[in-house]
Design a protein around this nucleic acid. Structure first.
Lengths: 254, 254
DNA sequence: TCAATCCTTATGTCAGGACAATCGGACTAC
DNA sequence: GTAGTCCGATTGTCCTGACATAAGGATTGA
């Protein structure tokens, strides 16, 4: 007896363009992701088997698997051997990214502004030299910024960068994020080591952020590396906890 | 002229056991990872091309690629078309995991202890019912714990769980972490939504954690989902920032 | 009625081959 | 000398085919 088990991908109008330079598996992954995002593939529904899907699209099974796997890695799908592939119905789907505060705020529609307080060269002390991988006493960029949202101070950002990577134009620092500057200088960001904590505001910090002395502050220290393992940035940030918190989603790795 | 360009994987004594039920790509990935970890493959060195490696091990290229890709996903390797595969030389390699505070402390050799203050059933209020996906007024587990390290209070943990998933034995809660209990109950943890912030300690909180009133506290709120998208746990934790911070490594997703 | 066994179905693993795209160095032409 | 071009090396993409493994339901047996 033929099961009337509808394959939800059948009615999606999926198609791939073999003339496009975009890889086939990527085209498929994008279309599936869009379908999930807009609800055309409802959470919890089975996806219909890979073989059929491959046949329907005129693709090979490995290609289809590669597309599906990329969505599994993103946490959108779950595969079960012997059962099928299922749309996970998670509330939020924002993964933890290597993103800058600026981008985060902009995405949240907060219209962030930056005030560059300091943009200069300083000799690296021992600790800074160690994390950035330069010699002690070598010049490094030092940037201090105040990030505002809706005209209110939100965070105080101190960053150090090795010289020679990019030219830190104060004007551009005020209109965009540091990560975006790094990327547009041809640097491939690879990983970052972060530490998030809290402490009481020292007098100078308190004044900068318009908080009372001793108020709790959220702190983040970070070192960012490019794909060669070279440290490209180190930062020490303090946030007003009433205006900012770190929100993100974790995925269980396999 | 033959290039005397030594393939560092040649001298590693790599071998796979076809009789083992462990997938071949996984065996290879483990051996490569071990070699990187112990320094046999030095940071920055090229890995030698996939074709040769496959031939040497008697594997097909897709299998070797799968092994390498898994290490790329972990951030240990970087591939460059036309160049080769390179060991990234990063300082730390701990990824951000879906791990419990208990496991983290244990891994750090801190010998954590737990004090279960409350372990009972309470009716879910509107907010809790919404995040856990139960009806308002339904009974849910409520667990309050104090986590100690070296006899000093470290964190105060409040968790809520739907009923019917597992039996929360107070004794086991004191000797292990909540995540481990969930996993051993056959629940596959899939993702978690986290929010990390800070605030001043209220009088009751301050006393529990042995901090002065108004002291800064690090806070974390979390909802954990299993692979069907069902919420299996929700927690509100407060940490003493002098004793704990969130340390982790982020990877740029492709 | 209940438990063990078989069967179907789907994903997981692996092989071997082909061609394209890209990087970097060497070579060439101006 | 300098810029453009070619070329070899290596990974990226894609194909076909095969068998293994696990999950779940159906069947069969006590």
């Amino acid at each position: 007896m033929p099961k009337p088990q509808a394959d939800p991908t059948a009615s999606l109008g999926l198609r791939v363009d073999r003339g496009s330079p975009v890889p086939l598996y990527f085209q498929l992954a994008q279309q599936l992701e869009a379908a999930i995002e807009e609800g055309a593939l409802s959470p919890g529904s089975l996806l219909g088997n890979e073989i059929e899907l491959a046949a329907r699209l005129g693709l090979s099974r490995p290609t289809v698997r590669q597309a599906i796997q990329s969505l599994v890695d993103k946490g959108l799908l779950v595969r079960r051997r012997g059962v099928g592939t299922q749309v996970v119905h998670s509330q939020v789907r924002r993964p933890l990214e290597l993103s800058s505060l600026y981008d985060d705020l902009e995405a949240a529609g907060q219209r962030p502004t930056s005030l560059v307080l300091v943009n200069t060269l300083v000799p690296a002390d021992a600790e800074l030299a160690a994390v950035l991988g330069v010699a002690e006493g070598d010049d490094v960029h030092r940037v201090e910024r105040l990030r505002l949202a809706h005209g209110e101070p939100l965070a105080y950002l101190v960053n150090h960068l090795p010289t020679g990577l990019l030219d830190l134009d104060t004007g551009r620092l005020e209109t965009t994020g540091l990560y975006r500057l790094l990327r547009s200088a041809g640097i491939t960001l690879h990983s970052a080591r972060q530490s998030i904590g809290a402490r009481a505001a020292a007098p100078a910090e308190a004044e900068r952020l318009d908080e009372p002395e001793g108020a709790p502050l959220l702190t983040m220290e970070r070192v960012t590396y490019d794909d060669t393992g070279r440290a490209v940035e180190s930062g020490a940030h303090t946030y007003r906890p009433s205006r900012y918190s770190f929100d993100f989603q974790l995925l269980a790795r396999s």
